[in-house]
Nucleic acid binder design. Structure first.
Length: 863
RNA sequence: GCGAGAGUGGCGGAAUUGGUAGACGCACUGGACUUAGGAUCCAGCUCUGGCGACAGAGUGGGAGUUCAAGUCUCCCCUCUCGCACCA
């Protein structure tokens, strides 16, 4: 055995060995309990970053642990390979998205292998390959057939810089989630998935996902955004049209004095026609559609609107209500129309004040009658009904029910539920995505591509156009086709591609049978492996990806391909990897190598100005605080990198990177190595002691007991909550104790006990630092891989403590402590405490009023 | 504004059901071994007072429940994240 540990050598050696022995390949085996462990697959953006390293290390430890516990573990990896960065990079480098993507995949795969992750690489998938997206196209056809996919003209979120449509989920506070530029509204023919059909089901099951962080289910619930209320129809004056309105406050309907329609509402131009307001309305609509929709801009917007010239009737009391179009009415919510009740809604109140509209109080506080003219703000709380004909005097919550009954009885409305969730727009005017498999025929209209013609292959030889526009509409070889229905040569292929989130909504099912070429997946394989037992990834996907995946699983369930609805049983959202950033007043963010040590503090290497240490933030290129995993691998190796990622913080929390912390992790591994090295002569040929602790005494007995305690602790930490940081701490304690044992140890079982301690420590560490553990395992004479060893088990009788420390408190304050035999009886403890000299100082001359004894823990004397 | 989570030494972080606050590590200090050490080992390390034994204070702030509160209850403050003109 070498005195020093050489990561470079052993890591390469064992990686090659594992690969050759196909140790991570799995097969369906109904005889064994399955465990499907999945980490969110990466976008092949170039190279692995620390966030990936952390995510995949956490997953790998669980996978390796579960294998040792006897599970048949599916642990796959693949590439979310379609998407815009590939196009942008291709334009920038005068390359091709496919080339760029495949090269990145090669680079990143090599990096993942260098980190020693235990993936079944035979199951690797890349979503940009036709054998993958062909099944997505197949599913699209099924969904079209069932009416789950449809096409409609609608206002869509349009990102000008990206030249594409965005889903609502991809608009963050009015900005494009990718480029951060403002998103405009544009009217286009688009494909949609009817996710809103599942709004209630998705919402209901949010409360039936005990293995998910509450934070995530809460976010999903908010996103789905269910509101209970009523839909009420307001007839338009002098016309047979009605304006349906959704409201959560139908108790205030008698106070509705005007109506506001969204600027995009189809009735707006119609109502304005012939009223003389056409021009004003048109001008307003034009102006509003250009308004920025950023968070800040929205806050600053004044509520404004313009009279359409039309009136409608309040169906409850016949009041004539002017119809406005207003910037705060959103076409995307409810029916795009708001019944305005200025007395009881702040927004309506502001609007009414601005335009001199009538305010009618219909709810009063318990003990006063509001005066509409004197109000300075809307009264939005509960109270007693007024000016509401038959309901006056009733508490408003009661009236709400009665009004709903009346609406339904008179057939002018009904109880209704509204969701914030919109249908999922999946059309993208981009090149690097899966083609939507339909044909537009001048005679037959939209014709789905027949199944036998799949896949519709994305031509990988197309050149990108200026500004990133898709070449597909101009690519005759792709676009030109015959109508599958009538054979017309005038037919044209759909040139939109699908949102990349479609690919990631079912990849976990594909992993179950990645080479299946007769279906999306082999149903037996999916039945065996799915659902995913543990899913691990970043919170940034809490809404988009996770909601879409839940939706897709429901679709698959409805078309009878799977027999479950929820794809992920347990979810772990790991925190970000962060680091301090450093800024120079002149040069902005600095790289670490641009910092010079100087007298009185660090200085900028470029201008010698004193620098300031910034906040600890997520690693990012722009902050110049990234740590390149490659450098760590070169310097410390995979095991130290993995160890530090797990030790520095529990997985769900943000991890603050510390170069010295990495150093400490490397030091620990060396310490373990040296321990085995020091003991080697004694334990090389010994068999681990597995007997009762009662035959041992002294240091050996202590070490043996500690070993079992640590086995128990590590197992619990991993099993219950993935707290690897405390698991590692526990092994450190064991190692520290082992170092205190003076060599050579004498006694019949000495070698066996040392061997047991060393082997246990190595086994417990093996999921975390697999190469390191494997090397020691073999040095200790094992022939078979440590990966095939069962997880160590503790002995109950070794957890029993010989003696315990009992503390003595006086009035709850700690005064002394003594070590006594386990299970010393209460009377004896009490007596020892009261007679204790140190304790005496605090109770002398006082009356003892009560003594509380907690066996094996403490005595509290109340005086 | 609404919703969720978090506040513990110089730092990252530990503390089963309320029962020894600060495990483990980093940094720092002292010592040992050394030609040397940025290797390794040993010791110290919450704050205040004291040479010391020891005493007092201490888990964002304030109240409360309890023999006993980091942990439970109420109020307040700060930070992070998510949603946000949602009718």
């Amino acid at each position: 055995m070498e005195e020093r540990y050489n990561p470079r050598e052993i890591e390469a050696k064992w990686q090659a060995d594992w690969e050759q022995a196909h140790l991570f390949q799995v097969e369906d085996d109904p005889a064994r309990p399955k465990y499907y462990l999945l980490e969110m697959f990466p976008y092949p953006s170039g190279k692995i970053h620390m966030g990936h390293v952390r995510n995949y290390t956490i997953g790998d430890v669980v996978a390796r642990y579960k294998r040792m516990q006897g599970h048949n573990v599916l642990h796959p990896m693949g590439w979310d390979a379609f998407g815009m960065p590939a196009e942008n990079a291709a334009i920038a480098n005068n390359s091709h998205p496919a080339k760029w993507t495949y090269e990145n995949i090669d680079t990143m795969r090599a990096q993942l292998k260098r980190l020693g992750f235990s993936y079944d690489w035979d199951r690797e998938i890349a979503t940009c390959r036709p054998d993958y997206y062909r099944w997505e196209q197949w599913l699209f056809l099924k969904m079209y057939e069932k009416g789950m996919a449809y096409r409609k003209e609608s206002f869509v979120n349009w990102c000008e810089p990206c030249q594409t449509v965005l889903a609502n989920e991809q608009v963050e506070a009015g900005m494009c989630w990718r480029c951060g530029k403002p998103v405009a509204q544009k009217k286009l023919q688009q494909w949609f998935f009817r996710i809103t059909d599942y709004a209630q089901d998705l919402l209901t099951h949010c409360d039936q996902l005990p293995g998910w962080p509450e934070k995530v289910t809460t976010m999903q619930k908010n996103w789905i955004g269910r509101s209970k209320g009523a839909q009420i129809e307001f007839p338009v004056d002098g016309s047979d049209k009605v304006i349906p309105v959704f409201t959560t406050r139908h108790d205030t309907v008698y106070g509705a004095t005007f109506m506001c329609l969204a600027p995009e509402h189809p009735l707006v131009p119609e109502l304005a026609m012939g009223t003389g307001q056409e021009e004003a309305v048109d001008e307003f609509i034009q102006r509003i559609s250009r308004q920025e929709r950023t968070t800040k801009a929205i806050e600053d917007y004044e509520k404004e609107g313009v009279f359409t010239g039309a009136y409608c009737r309040n169906p409850m009391n016949g009041r004539r209500m002017p119809v406005y179009t207003a910037n705060f009415a959103l076409m995307e919510y409810g029916t795009g129309a708001v019944m305005s009740v200025p007395a009881h809604d702040q927004r309506d109140f502001d609007f009414a004040k601005k335009y001199g509209l009538e305010i009618v109080v219909v709810i009063n506080p318990e003990d006063e009658a509001l005066d509409a003219d004197a109000m300075t703000e809307a009264y939005t709380q509960d109270g007693v009904m007024a000016h509401s004909a038959p309901f006056d005097g009733l508490p408003n919550r009661q009236a709400m029910e009665k009004i709903a009954d009346l609406l339904e009885e008179k057939k002018i409305g009904r109880r209704a539920v509204s969701y914030r969730l919109r249908d999922w727009g999946i059309s993208r005017q981009r090149y690097w995505g899966a083609p939507i498999p339909v044909v537009h025929c001048p005679d037959c209209g939209i014709v789905p591509v027949p199944e036998k013609d799949l896949p519709i292959v994305l031509p990988e030889d197309a050149d990108l156009l200026e500004g990133g526009r898709s070449p597909l509409p101009g690519l005759e070889s792709f676009r030109k086709t015959r109508c599958p229905e009538c054979g017309s040569a005038a037919a044209r292929r759909e040139t939109d591609t699908m949102d990349t989130f479609v690919e990631s909504s079912w990849y976990f099912e594909r992993y179950c049978s990645p080479h299946c070429d007769t279906a999306m997946f082999d149903r037996k394989a999916v039945k065996y492996w799915m659902p995913v037992d543990q899913y691990i990834g970043g919170v940034e996907h809490a809404i988009l990806h996770l909601l879409y995946s839940r939706y897709f699983t429901r679709v698959l369930n409805d078309i009878d391909l799977v027999d479950f609805k929820e794809p992920f049983t347990r979810l772990l959202t790991q925190g970000m990897v962060c680091k301090e950033s450093v800024t120079c007043p002149e040069h902005g963010f600095l790289f670490p190598e641009q910092v010079e040590e100087g007298e009185g503090g660090d200085r900028c290497a470029l201008c010698a100005k004193p620098i300031s240490v910034g906040r600890v933030e997520k690693m990012s290129k722009s902050k110049r605080n990234v740590v390149d995993p490659n450098i760590l691998l070169d310097q410390y190796g995979a095991d130290t990198t993995r160890l530090f990622c797990l030790f520095a913080a529990p997985p769900e929390r943000d991890l603050e990177w510390s170069d010295q912390g990495v150093e400490g992790s490397a030091r620990f591994l060396n310490r373990v190595w040296r321990l085995v090295y020091n003991w080697f002569g004694q334990i090389a040929d010994a068999a681990p002691y597995k007997g009762s602790p009662d035959k041992l005494e002294g240091d050996l007995r202590e070490l043996y007991k500690k070993t079992h305690q640590v086995i128990e602790k590590v197992t619990r930490d991993i099993e219950d909550r993935f707290h690897f940081n405390t698991a590692i701490s526990a092994v450190m304690e064991l190692v520290n104790l082992a170092y205190n044992i003076k060599l050579p140890v004498k006694g019949p079982d000495a070698e066996g006990v040392l061997r047991h301690a060393a082997e246990s420590a190595v086994l417990l560490l093996s999921p975390i630092v697999p190469h390191f553990a494997e090397e020691i395992w073999h040095l200790l004479g094992h022939q078979e891989s440590i990966l095939l060893s069962p997880w160590p088990r503790h002995r109950e009788d070794a957890l029993v403590k010989d003696e315990v420390t009992v503390v003595v408190q006086v009035n709850g304050k700690l005064r002394n402590r003594f070590v006594v035999a386990l299970d010393t009886d209460e009377q004896a403890l009490k007596q020892m405490a009261v007679e204790d000299e140190k304790v005496g100082k605090f109770i002398d001359g006082k009356t003892i009023r009560k003594v509380i004894v907690v066996p094996n823990k403490l005595v509290n004397i109340v005086v």
